[in-house]
Amino acid sequence: MTASWIIAKRELRSYFDSLVAYILLLTFLGFTGFFVWLSGNGDVFFRKQADLKVFFSIANWTLFFFIPAITMKLVAEEKRSGTIELMMTKAVTNWQFVWGKFMAAFLLVAIALAFTLPYYYTISTLGNFDHGANIAGYLGLLLLSAAYIGIGIFASSLTNNQIVAFLLALIIGICFHFLFGVMASGSSGLVSEIFDTLSLSSHFDSISRGVIDSKDLIYFISVTAIGLILSEYIISKR
């Protein structure tokens, strides 16, 4: 068993021990469930289309707020309590530490998404359902979550205060989720193209339409990797 997996298991357990996981799962399922099934205007019955578009759009926004809440403690709390010293003096590399933290947060999000699979099954029985596009939508949510977790762990490694980590992750997230898209539509030519390439939402929209483009995959993997590499770098500076 590698050190990363041992760390991930402990971290995942601490989410469930501290109620964070239950609050997240309940709120996530409550939010998405309400908008998919009950909201009236815009829910699946109103749209009369057997797809998960509403779910993907709501999940995208919900995860944008939830992931910083999951990641804020990952490194900041270890720094505050001093347990980082304990971890870094065990037979664990900085990279294994960061990767373990990433896996824990990613697994928690994956569990949350797994609980929405009944939506997938139910809606697929309601009409003409495009499995490919909807599976791609789930893939998009996983990739988007990975990117936000990368950003969140980076923010958490910058400070020993969880609130600061949360706000930092949210601020960086706003740029990728929202601001770059706005700037892309507000400008033209090369500048617009650059901002559009940086915008996380445009890549997510592209995948959730069912088009799995290598450009989008590379984008999400790059944002995640840069977040984790920077975190590793910051942790190694002590």
């Binding site: 041992i6 402990r10 601490s14 010293e85 003096t89 065990k90």
Partner: peptide, 27 residues
């Protein structure tokens, strides 16, 4: 190396046995 840091940081939310098993696995 076995190390006991100055302020003895510990994962307070963990039971003693689980914590010791965790550190043993890590080492």
């Amino acid at each position: 190396i076995g190390y006991l840091p100055e302020h003895n940081p510990l994962y307070l939310e963990m039971p003693v046995m689980d914590y010791l098993s965790f550190t043993a696995a890590l080492q």
